[in-house]
Each structure stands twice: as C-alpha cells, then as structure tokens.
Design a binder for these strands. Structure first.
Lengths: 237, 237
DNA sequence: CATGGACAACTGCCATAGCAGTTGGCAGCG
DNA sequence: CGCTGCCAACTGCTATGGCAGTTGTCCATG
C-alpha cells in the first residue's frame, strides 16, 4: 500500500481514475469520441497523431485501436491506415437486434441471480423513472435508464455479457446522436415496460424476463428509428 | 504488391500466415492453447515469459493478452500478473446460453441475406453430414459442423457477430475438452436439426430459423453436459 | 502534354529499455 | 521462536527508436 494513510489508520479512498492505465483511458476516450460523433465515420485515425493529441505515447493508443477494432468500431488496413468504421443504417439495425437478444439473455440470468438488494435498487430507479416521466425530464430518464440496464448487466455477473453489451450500448448512443428520431418517445409506455421487467425479475421467471426485455429493447429501437418497421404481430391468420 | 509474383504475372496465393502480424498470430495461438488446455485455468501468463517462448518481443504478446482479456479468457491484475481465467461449469453454462441466443440472431439474419450460392454450399455440407452420420465419423462431423455454422455466420456479414461467436465457439471447444460428455450424442437427431435449419433459411423465415437454431444449440449444449437439465417444456398445464 | 519512376512523407508494426508497483524471502532484531 | 523491515526478482506499463510497406507528389523523359 503505497500511500494515503491518515493519522488514525483510516485508509483514504484512492482516486481510481488515476490508477487506470493509459491504454484503458485511451480506449474509453476514443470510443466516446466515436459514438459522440467527434470522430465521424471514415475519419483517419493514426496512432501517432492521436498519441500527440492525447499527450501520450503511441503504444497505448495502438492497444486502444486494436481493442476498438475488435469491437468493430474501427477498421485498419495493414500498413495503410486505420479509419473509423462506417456504420450504415443496416449495420445499426443488425447490432440493435443483436443487442436485443443479449439484453434478453442478461435479463434471464438476472432473474435467476439478482438478490434482494439489487431488486430494491431497481425499485428505487423505477421511482426516479416515475418522477422523470411525469416531469418529462429526458436527461434524468436517460440516466436512470442507463443505470437500470447496467444494474441488470452486473447482476448477471458475466463479464462477457457486460463487455459486449457495453459496446452495443455505445452503438445505440451513436444511433441516437444521428437524430433520426422518427417517432416521438412514448414515455409512459417505457415506464410500464420497465416495471413489467422488474416484476418478471421479482418472480424469478427467466423466460418471461427475457421476452419482456427483448421486446422492450426492440420497441425502443423502433422509436429511435434504427429498426425499420413495426411489423404487425401475426398480421393475419 | 511486395512479393509473390511468378513469371507470367500470376499472383501466387499468399501464405497468409506470413502476412499476419505477430500480435494477431500470438492472439490466435494463445487462444488455441487456452481452449486446448495447454494453458489451464489459473496458469500465470506473463508477457515476458510468453514472449521468449514464442520467440518474439513482449509487445505483440501484450496486445494479444489485452484482446484475450476483452474476450474474458484471461484476467490481469495491474502490476501483479495475468492469469488464465477460471471457467467454472456455471460460467460455461452462461456462455452457452449467450451463444445460443447469438447463433439464433445469426440464423435470422442469414435467413434474410443468404444467397443461392450459400444455400447450395449448405446443401453440400448437409450431404457430407449425412455420410458422416451413417459412418459415425465424429471427426468429419465436427469439421462439417464447424463449416456449417461458420458459413451461416459469414452470411450475416456482421463482423461483431462473427467475432463474438468465434470467441464463444472457442469456449465451446473448451467445454468439450473437459470431456464431461454426460449423454451420448444423438447423431441422426443432429442431422435432422441441421436440415430443419437449412429448410428455414431456404424459406427465408427469420423467426423460424432463429428458433430452430437456438433450440439446436441449446440441445447440443445439453448433450455436451455444459447445460444442466432438459427442463420439460411446459411441464404441466 | 502524357507517362513513368524516384523520393519524401506518411502508415502500422515491432524490439528495446526502463519505470513503478508488487511479491517473496531472508537477514536481523525483539 | 516470532515478528519487522529491507532487498532482489519479478510483474505490468509506457516511452523511444527504427523497420518495412504504402502513397502521393514532383521531376525527368519520351
């Protein structure tokens, strides 16, 4: 333990952010820049130029780019350059469907594992969502929504799931930033869906939780305009 | 074009292995070693020692380890060491369920996109599976099975899906190497399922293809012993 | 004017060296 | 004997330098 002891032996909490490696920080920073549109698709991103801009060496940047490549956010042509990956509407739609499926699995796992503390936290988030819905506070709702899903992801305890959904949610933000909000958001409906999901988790019903979560994600993707139609359920029989 | 030209201008097929970067080769090699059991869970893997063993520098090895960490195959404690991730039966089961969901999405996408050439290739693979099943040639069946799923993955054209399923399939191999084959494999049934999947793809029915593929994967995981029960569908009503 | 070739300015890729934090063991003190 | 403190041998992490391949420009040549 290198430092941070106070007089009476209490250990001061360490500032975590400083402990992250430069490679990790570069990875998160660049991913943020991509989904925020700061680095638009097709933009050339070379190790050296990014390194100087970030004030670090080229090595951590290279690592970050390799990881981003594994996420599919950049593509690199050997000895020629690295560019931000093009993300057409079709690609976004595919990733949305993948995310819906994974969120479903996460909900199913969470239904089996989530403890009482987690459920009560979800209840607290639901309360915030209620007030946010009544006030039509989109920022607060987005934040609560973020926590809602992140909590479920963590409840699964599965690192693969957490990482994958992290990348996928980043793409979701990208889609939102393109501002193709074709349909107005139905806030009360989203609240009802969130409540229904929590109810399924409380019942410890994996199949139900999965179905509801998946439906919820798909619907939200439709209202965001990344998923094309509302294909009529069982159009005619 | 740096090399590999013959006299008459014909481009010699590049040996692919030589063109891959050392980091990429190290990544694949290490992943192979992990799923093959050469590097068992809990084994310490330090950049330097691996580098000397592979005859390369520590830098590409480090990149490979970072990517493996993103795959969840190793965990690294900063400044302390990197170890092969522990993969308990529970973890393996979770990853199996995740893989089943993703394979389902892949089948759905393939049902929308796969062209006639791909379908005919699938038919050829089915023929090989038929003869392999009659001869009970497990090696040939495994190979055909690998190609079967890889072909569907590629048909989606989605890099994220392809990469993720690649990692997941690696875990699957790991589970198989643990030789907990609880139940004998039902070869004819697997063949029927594969045929049913292809039929759904031919019909261009995404929902059907997804359901069949997912069920197929889940069942195969059960016979492999990584997924626990055959929970009776609709036990009583 | 058009074309081909060489040079300079990139690019990703890799090896080396060294920093800082962690660990394990061993000596020395109580 | 038991505990403390130091030291050497690790570890992951980062910076630097340089290699090889690619590209674009500019000049010389037909």
């Amino acid at each position: 333990m290198p430092a941070a002891k106070t007089a009476l032996g209490r250990i001061a909490p360490l500032a975590e952010e400083d402990t992250l490696s430069l490679g990790e920080r570069a990875y998160r920073r660049l991913r943020e820049c991509i989904v925020q549109g700061v680095l638009p698709a097709g933009r050339k991103v070379s190790e050296r130029s990014l390194a100087t801009q970030l004030g670090i060496s080229a090595q951590p940047v290279r690592e970050a780019l390799r990881r981003l490549e594994q996420d599919g956010m950049v593509v690199t042509l050997p000895r020629r350059g690295t560019v931000v990956a093009e993300m057409g509407p079709a690609q976004l739609a595919e990733l949305g469907r993948i995310r819906a499926a994974l969120e479903g699995v996460a909900a199913a796992l969470a239904a089996e594992r989530m403890d009482a503390a987690g459920l009560s936290r979800l209840a607290a988030i639901l309360a915030r969502m209620k007030s946010g819905t009544e006030a039509a506070d989109h920022d607060a709702l987005d934040e609560a929504n973020e926590e809602f899903h992140a909590l479920i992801h963590r409840a699964t305890g599965n690192l693969f799931l957490i990482r994958s959904l992290g990348s996928l949610r980043a793409y979701d933000n990208l889609g939102r930033h393109r501002a193709i909000g074709s349909q107005p958001r139905d806030l009360p409906k989203a609240l009802r869906e969130h409540r229904a999901i929590v109810a399924a988790l409380r019942r410890r019903d994996p199949a139900l939780a999965e179905a509801r979560m998946r439906g919820h994600i798909l619907r939200s993707l439709v209202t965001n305009g990344v998923l094309p139609p509302p294909p009529r359920r069982r159009p005619a029989r």
